[in-house]
Amino acid sequence: MRVLSLKIGFLLAFICIKLSAQVTVDVKVDSTDILIGEQVHLTATVSAGSNQKVVFPEYASGTLTKGVEVLERSDVDTVFLNAGKRVQLKRSYTLTAFDSALYYFPPVEVMVDGKKYKSQNGIGLKVGTVPVDTVHLNNFSGPHSVVEGIFEWNGYLLGWSILLWGNLILLFLLLVRHSNRKPVTRRVMIRPKTPPHQQAITEIEKMKSDTPSTEENMKLCYMQLTDILRTYIQERFGFNAREMTSSEIIEQLLGNSDPSALRELRILLETADLVKFAKFTASLNEIDRSLMQAIDFVRTTKKEEPETSKPIVKEVAFDDLKQKRLRMAMSILISLLSLSLVVGGGMVIKEMYEVFL
């Protein structure tokens, strides 16, 4: 009994080995009836063991059989079967013929481990001719005109399209604004006013760099200095110092400022009056002293103000005349944009009609 079991086991193992080494070759074509110049694909399929070496025919001569040409050979497609024990290989050949006839393809031979294997059956291929009217020889139509390819954007069409979209967006914005009856406004930035003492000190410091060299320049220097002080006093103390004499200013300031600062201001104004009206010539030291007296007076009498705020942006409406002109300009621009849209749209439609039709 044990001997019988061993025999059966050896027999099954031999059958499995035999099956795994079996090689099959199958050939088929996708069509057996074509016209002259048309192409057909012949596919060779080989089933063999996964460890076997398979070599397909190359048809180096370029012909499968007389009259049938091999145009192209595909790569080998590999599929593993039976858990990797077997392999299925496929290769396609593109064929054509230029003579009408009935062709017979001999069995395809492949080499497997150096041994030749053939497909079981050959294949027939019928190649027919294109029907030609031999009776009405003069009825041949002329050559066709050039056929345009698929639609492609060109610079002309793209430019018109971009222009039309831009005009359409601008026209929409103008129509929205024109339909709004609110006055047209503009943004104005209002900067905080510079404190009077800062303005005065800045202007006096600037005068220090310009030293007068002649009597006329000296007179202009004192006139400019007194104008700066009169403007500062007017804004600081609230009376019209620009229209007062020096004595009237001193009298108005009595009791409102430091006595020592008022005394320095009196000396400065008297010196300035002498230079402007009595042709008094002051030395450079006196001019420098007057400038320092002016700065000291401003610093002594300045009024401490809160920290300067940031600039304020306000919407300011244009006057009635400008409102009318702006609305008229918008109406004209809307008309021009509408006209350009009509013309541009017609050009784009014409171009697309010529491309597609």
Rank of each mutant, 00 (worst) to 15 (best):
S5A: 13
L12H: 03
F14P: 00
F14R: 06
I17F: 07
S20P: 01
A21Y: 00
A21V: 06
T24G: 00
T32W: 02
L35G: 06
I36G: 10
L42P: 00
A44N: 07
S47D: 11
A48M: 04
G49Y: 02
P57C: 10
E58D: 14
V70C: 02
L71G: 08
R73F: 00
V76K: 05
T78D: 08
V79F: 07
K85I: 12
S92L: 00
A97T: 02
S100G: 14
Y104E: 12
P106E: 09
P106M: 11
E109I: 10
M111K: 06
S119R: 00
Q120M: 06
I123R: 04
G124F: 06
V127L: 05
T129C: 05
T134K: 14
G142F: 02
V146E: 14
V147I: 15
G149C: 05
I150W: 08
F151T: 09
L163E: 09
L163M: 13
W165H: 09
G166N: 09
L168Q: 10
F172A: 10
L173N: 07
R177D: 09
H178A: 08
T185H: 07
M189H: 07
M189G: 07
T194F: 00
T194I: 14
P195F: 01
P196Q: 04
I201D: 00
T202L: 05
I204E: 00
M207T: 06
T211V: 15
S213R: 15
E215P: 03
M218F: 01
Y222V: 06
Y222S: 02
Q224G: 10
Q224N: 15
Y232Q: 00
Q234R: 15
Q234D: 13
E235Y: 04
G238T: 11
E248V: 07
I249H: 01
E251D: 14
Q252C: 09
G255H: 04
N256G: 04
P259F: 12
L262I: 05
R263G: 06
E264D: 13
L268D: 07
L274T: 01
F277K: 04
F280T: 09
T281M: 10
S283H: 10
S283G: 14
D288I: 01
S290D: 06
S290T: 02
Q293C: 09
A294C: 02
D296N: 08
T301S: 15
K303D: 10
E305S: 11
P306E: 13
K310Y: 03
V313C: 01
K314I: 11
D320I: 12
Q323M: 14
K324C: 11
R327E: 04
R327T: 03
M328Y: 06
L336H: 03
L337W: 03
S338A: 15
V342M: 15
G344S: 09
V348N: 12
M352E: 03
Y353R: 11
E354Y: 08
E354W: 07
